[in-house]
Design a protein around this nucleic acid. Structure first.
Lengths: 351, 351
DNA sequence: TTGAAAGCGATACCAT
DNA sequence: ATGGTATCGCTTTCAA
């Protein structure tokens, strides 16, 4: 069943059949009705996507490229909220969404990259080469949570959120009996270094702030400490590669092993913080009395945990919605930074 | 940059360039290396997907059609786990995934349906007409959580899980002082009727068991009650249209309003049960002492709630993995029913 | 091993 | 308002 065969059967031109589907104003209502009716009867359900796309150069699909594998992102509550926001905006515009992994890409994968009309990049793709490829297509691109020169970007105010969180924590536990305590606060960081292993950042080279949101968060932490006259030694800042439960557990165990034991843990994601919470509990530590714990993101589970988690709220859903709107109408938008907000809950509620 | 222009620049045939990408054995290693190198230099990143797909009739994409909108499914923990499973299997095979909404579809949407090489249908599509359209394409289809004649299907044992859950609940609260109590248990059901409004099923026409997994669960509940000599009156079985928080709250409020108040709530999803939990709490009811609550699915939040939620575990992740494997190799698979298992936790832990 | 050419299914220009 | 036809970029058969 092709458009052509339909045209022959009805003894009209292919153009008319095509127009019946795509440009109702180009033919009489009568003819259009007849064509559409016959198509339904013969089981022709409309133009083939590949052919139409080849001819028009458009696909009606927005590509959402994730930083790494799809499976990983389906485990990340922030990514899920983000995708939900994108889906919501796109649904409204009757546009479709192709999820693309940002890992190493074979030739077959690369062919995929030619499908979408525009791209939302959720974080810098693991495979750095895709960036150049996408740019060479000259299609709209929106970078989320990072920046690409000469393209729209959408970020959140990591610095401010981190600053507020750290300010709160340091002012609670940064001094002991009025004297500065440089061992009071440890950080469970995420992707601060270019390594898989969990370790402190002491003596290592950090990612720069322009490529790593974690680095920005760390800078926020540090600034708050400094402004309060406190210190945040590198030897108390831990790096993890993934935000997965196991990494959080391992890093939290190491962090809480330090002598003297830190009185607070600043975590760079709620997932890490939740894992830390469970480590603290299993070590018989009271939260927040023995150790305060603060997260980042404000995923749904943060409110539901016990104790509930103090954290930095970021508007993941709204970020997704906006990213979709931006990429659909790039000319009507500017680079944007969405606000974040520190939320005090039980896990840091020291008097 | 097209394959043809590359061929001209290098003074070779288009066939050779194509072969360089697709069939290394069809040309000398030297020539291939030269072609690939020049492509990289000139910024040709491989064949255009639409053209290749038009020509070969394959796309390297698996379509995952959800029952309704994408946004709705990104809110459903089961759907997310399922998609994660699919993504995991597909990642391994270097195949890609196109998420497709199963709601009402415009012509543009219908064009999308011609892209994938095969389809996973996660629940019966809201728009019933897509089923016929997909079938007429003669591509592999796997139906998940429902059945299509002459196509592979993958289900879970809803009946057994529901039976176990209800058996547990009725044997705890089904009799009072040794006499049968037909008001002991209410059901918060999901999509039992073809209506949006929340109501009991008394006097209404239920979906049949072959199109509604909820109906199967209800049948399991009923059978367990019957086997224990108890009753499950239609007037205590509530229907909701969505598994969203608000629906759960509303249905639970109505259910708990019945006089005498039910001693247990059998909910058809954990989302509904969690909402019921919160209703019970806000009414000052103790769970499980005043009212026991049981869910279905065993989403992650079920263990984390307080009290933790008794529920029927279903292997959503594994279901996704298997669905992907089935659709990629339909001949090697048969219709499958995955087991479910009732898990007792605190919300029904009556002695 | 390489090249020429047909054709995948649709669109849109240009005639009529 | 309708029809004829070149063309989108690529794959693949067949011949050289």
């Amino acid at each position: 069943m092709t458009l052509k065969s339909i045209a022959q059967r009805l003894d009209v031109s292919t153009a008319s059949v095509s127009n019946a589907f795509n440009r109702p104003d180009q033919l009489s209502a009568d003819l259009r009705a007849r064509i559409l009716k016959e198509c339904a009867r013969l089981g022709y359900h409309g133009p083939n996507h590949a052919a139409r796309s080849l001819r028009t150069g458009k696909s009606g699909i927005v590509g959402v490229m994730l930083a790494d594998s799809l499976a990983y992102n389906f485990k990340d509550p922030c990514a899920i909220e983000f995708m939900r926001g994108v889906a919501e905006s796109l649904d409204n515009q009757r546009v479709n969404l192709l999820l693309m992994p940002g890992g190493e890409s074979s030739f077959d994968q690369q062919a995929l990259e030619t499908i979408p009309d525009c791209f939302i990049l959720y974080g810098p793709p693991n495979d750095r080469s895709v960036l150049g490829r996408l740019q060479s297509q000259h299609k709209p691109i929106v970078a989320v949570d990072f920046t690409i020169p000469n393209h729209l970007s959408l970020n959140i105010d990591n610095y401010q959120g981190a600053y507020e969180a750290a300010h709160h924590v340091f002012s609670k536990v940064g001094t002991v009996d009025g004297t500065l305590d440089s061992t009071a606060v440890a950080v469970v960081g995420l992707r601060l270094l270019d390594q898989q292993a969990i370790s402190t950042i002491a003596g290592r080279t950090l990612f720069e702030a322009d490529v790593s949101i974690s680095r920005v968060r760390l800078d926020g932490f540090r600034a708050a400490a400094r402004d309060l006259g406190c210190a945040l030694p590198d030897s108390l800042v831990w790096h993890t590669h993934d935000s997965a439960w196991n990494d959080g557990v391992e890093a939290a165990e190491l962090a809480l092993q330090t002598q003297p034991r830190p009185r607070a843990l600043l975590c760079m994601s709620d997932q890490l913080a939740l894992a830390a919470l469970s480590v603290a509990r299993s070590q018989g530590l009271r939260v927040p009395e023995d150790v305060a714990i603060v997260g980042f993101d404000d995923i749904p589970a943060a409110q539901q945990s016990h104790p509930s988690l103090s954290t930095v709220y970021q508007p993941s859903l709204e970020k997704g919605r906006l990213a979709a709107r931006m990429v659909m109408a790039p000319d009507k938008h500017h680079n944007t930074v969405l606000p974040t907000k520190f939320i005090v809950r039980e896990s840091s509620a020291l008097k």
